[in-house]
């Protein structure tokens, strides 16, 4: 009885092409929609380097590494965003075939795997990331940006956020009639 009610309720939600959103989603959304602007920044500085090298004949020593750095941040936070959108790549042949209660069990297992994986990354990498950060480890180049010092801790933070977001997804999707992927353009006003 309750199940049917919930199902109707959720179908309404789904049909609006919108979905429940809580503070965890808001954090992911805020991060993602801020960090994504680094992509045009990468293009801009890249053009600056080409201009300086080809036209001015004064190549820079920092563009290459800045691009690497910014892109790395994008991939990591992009991983969190992809988790929120349920757009990580998976094979749904069997998943689509089984009943909804079985799907919930599959979802539960998936989430446990992701959480265990995140725990392994964080547990195994904690010491290394901490050491890099505390020693402000640099990239061993002329410009010498602190890429290891920042990217290793950021990797752990993003993996943690992926795990949190996955648990959040599980809770939200548990009541839904069917898990669905969300269209990123819906995020844009």
């Amino acid at each position: 009885m309750l199940d049917k009610q919930l199902q109707e309720q959720n179908e309404k939600v789904a049909s609006k092409d919108d979905f429940p959103i809580n503070w965890i989603d808001r954090v992911s959304l805020f991060l993602s929609h801020t960090i994504k602007y680094l992509i045009p920044v990468i293009v801009l500085v890249m053009m600056y380097e080409i201009f300086m090298r080809y036209i001015m004949e004064k190549p820079t020593m920092w563009v290459n590494e800045l691009c690497l750095w910014l892109a790395g941040i994008c991939y990591l936070v992009g991983g969190v965003y992809a988790t929120r959108l349920r757009s990580h790549i998976r094979i749904v042949l069997l998943y689509d075939w089984v009943s909804r209660p079985t799907q919930r069990i599959f979802d539960l297992i998936s989430t446990i795997i992701i959480v265990l994986f995140a725990a392994a990354v964080i547990y195994g990498g904690m010491e290394d990331a901490y050491r890099s950060f505390i020693n402000w480890e640099r990239f061993a180049t002329f410009w010498d940006p602190p890429i290891p010092a920042t990217m290793k801790p950021l990797t752990l933070i993003c993996v943690f956020l992926i795990a949190v977001q996955s648990v959040n997804n599980l809770i939200i999707d548990w009541r839904n009639p069917k898990e669905k992927q969300y269209d990123p353009s819906k995020d844009l006003k």
Binding site: R53, P59, M61, E65, T141, W143
Partner: peptide, 8 residues
């Protein structure tokens, strides 16, 4: 006086 280029 050379112009080193940073490149992968």
């Amino acid at each position: 006086g050379a112009k080193p280029i940073v490149m992968d």
